[in-house]
């Protein structure tokens, strides 16, 4: 264990370099640059608000904030796991030639997306100001669901990045899965418009639980119950450990397949 921590510390500068590289490459030559992390959720939110506030008229009090809480969480999950999925095989040339901890690649993608997520929270604040939504002290605890989300996504990302080395089709398949998951997560609709049997399954989705916790805190000044916390802690912890196990078991074989 100590060796792992030492090794991580030795390469932590690599981690920050990988993350900065991703930002530089992503926003290269775009005039607005990092501002897009902020504008993107704002603009999507505007479109969806225009469309859906008519559809689910009186159901949700502050639809823009409701939607943003869901979409920042979902976008983080979808972006980070998608990037992590390809992170091993697209860095094949490096992995074949230099030794360093391979988990740095998927991990750096999660850090990258996390920074994007935190920027998007500024969008949430802007929209709250514009819609004159009340600010609650419970909202300051937003980092709790974000933490569960982060740990959960790393676990999924590690598994995906491993699996994608052996089955490239996963990259295409996963895009479809994410779309399906988007509809099974109450990002832009209230959960109670679903038929009851479906509601049960949608409720099982960890992302649903994370989004609901975030909305409780930000929109309703409600503290999440101990049970909610324990369930999410267990789900994200187990996913994380599973991801680590799978990745560790297979990482020495990567080089033969990439």
């Amino acid at each position: 264990m100590r060796i792992y921590i030492q090794n991580f510390l030795k390469y932590r500068y690599l981690l920050s370099q990988l993350v900065t590289r991703d930002f530089k490459v992503k926003y290269k030559r775009s005039v607005l640059g990092v501002l897009w992390s902020l504008l993107n959720p704002l603009l999507t939110m505007t479109i969806l608000t225009l469309v859906f506030s008519k559809l689910f008229k009186s159901n949700i009090p502050n639809y823009p904030v409701y939607f943003l809480c869901g979409s920042v969480v979902f976008n983080y999950f979808s972006e980070s796991t998608n990037l992590a999925l390809g992170s091993i095989y697209s860095n094949a040339s490096l992995i074949k030639k230099v030794y360093f901890p391979k988990y740095m690649f998927p991990f750096s993608k999660h850090i990258f997306s996390l920074i994007n997520l935190l920027t998007s929270f500024i969008a949430v604040i802007i929209v709250m100001l514009v819609t004159k939504a009340p600010f609650y002290s419970a909202g300051l605890l937003f980092f709790i669901p974000v933490f569960y989300l982060f740990v959960f996504s790393i676990g999924i990302g590690l598994m995906l990045s491993t699996a994608a080395v052996f089955f490239r089709d996963l990259a295409h398949l996963y895009g479809i899965l994410i779309t399906a998951l988007n509809f099974l997560t109450p990002v832009f609709y209230p959960i109670d418009i679903m038929p009851e049997t479906m509601q049960y399954y949608v409720g099982l989705n960890p992302l649903t639980q994370i989004i609901q916790m975030l909305r409780q805190l930000i929109m309703y000044n409600e503290l999440p119950s101990l049970r909610q916390n324990l369930v999410l802690l267990a789900i994200s912890g187990v996913t994380f450990l599973l991801g680590v196990l799978v990745f560790r078991k297979k990482q020495d074989k990567f080089i033969m397949y990439i």
């Binding site: 030795k10 390469y11 500068y13 690599l14 920050s16 370099q17 990988l18 590289r21 530089k24 490459v25 290269k28 040339s93 490096l94 074949k96 030639k97 230099v98 360093f100």
Partner: peptide, 26 residues
């Protein structure tokens, strides 16, 4: 072994020196 494996062609030489150094564990 193969030099410059970690270069990112989109970045400048200055940025690449830091990136490549980090890959080598500096």
């Amino acid at each position: 072994i193969e030099l410059g494996a970690g270069f990112d062609m989109e970045l400048t030489a200055r940025e690449n020196i830091y990136l490549n150094g980090a890959i080598l564990g500096y």
